[in-house]
Amino acid sequence: MVAVQRSLGSYTTVLFGADQGKYPDGNSVLVRGTNGSVLIDPSLTVRAAAVPIEVDRVLLTHAHEDHLAGLSAVRADEIGVHERDLAALHSIDGLMALYGIPAARVPAMTQLVTERFHYVGWPDAVGFADDAVWDLGGVSVRAVPAPGHTGGHCLFSIEPDDGSHRVVVLGDIDLSGFGPYYGDAQSSLDEFDATLQMLPSLVADHYVTFHHKGVVDGHAAFVDAATTFASMIATREHALLGLVGEPRTLAELCDIGIVYRPGTRPPLFGDGVEQHSIERHLDRLLAAGRVVSDGTRYRLV
């Protein structure tokens, strides 16, 4: 079993990754009821456990490489992800399509996810719908659709029958200073906004992020952290508006960027993240009449 753990009541255990789940690792969640068990987002740390974890079902918040890195080391009868992300779990082609990796970088990205994150493709994995609930005996796990990061990104609400120690597993709503990530081909800024507006309605005792924070205790602390996390969208928009104070092409905007700090852009996929993110902000600004384009360059109105 994983060395660093925290029990959240009688049914739920957080299995912490290295450095509070700092990428490429993450924080996994194990739920054991009287009639069933679930492991959520098996990490690299789960993969390295001396004794393999055995559960009835593995559930993924979404189909990204770090959230499934321990999957092939877990003994489970079923693997599930939201149906919108299922193709990315079934095959490497589906995963690359979800990312939107340029063809020239697909071989290198494929090597990364297979060697570092142990991706093999799981064609027998099943997709679940928005209203999915798993009754484990004494505790239920309920899917909470939270798209934007990916189309199928979901949270999981862990709900003991006695109402104690309610837990929400947040996936990549990681409440970090980096802010929301909507840089894949199948991400959506509009859906992410709707997800962020929904978050305060999730009343629980504990909130678990896959990266960085680990466990946030109490609804008030969660809402405060979620508000700060969401504010990065406006920060990026403000930065972009500053860049189009003079006419610039999309390529010029991407070279400067609004997502990564200087010197931190990942070499394989960082350019794509910047482009997808900037395009989504530009679409909003064009629709709002705050920015205009001559077909080549963008500038502030």
Rank of each mutant, 00 (worst) to 15 (best):
M1L: 11
Q5D: 02
T13W: 01
V14T: 05
D19K: 11
D19L: 14
Q20D: 15
S28K: 01
V38Q: 08
D41M: 07
D41S: 14
E54S: 11
H62F: 04
H64M: 04
H67W: 01
S72H: 11
A73T: 08
D77G: 15
I79E: 02
E83L: 11
H90I: 10
G100V: 05
A104H: 03
Q111T: 11
R116F: 05
D124K: 11
V126Y: 03
F128G: 07
D130N: 13
L136W: 07
V144L: 15
P145N: 02
A146M: 14
P147C: 04
G148F: 03
G152V: 11
C154K: 04
D161G: 03
V168I: 13
S176W: 00
Y181R: 06
Y181S: 14
Y182P: 00
A185T: 02
T195A: 04
L199A: 03
A204K: 03
D205N: 14
V208R: 01
H212K: 09
K213I: 10
A220E: 15
T228W: 06
S231N: 08
S231E: 13
L241I: 00
L241A: 02
E246T: 09
P247G: 00
T249W: 00
P262T: 11
T264K: 12
P267D: 12
F269T: 09
V273T: 11
S277G: 04
R280W: 01
L286C: 07
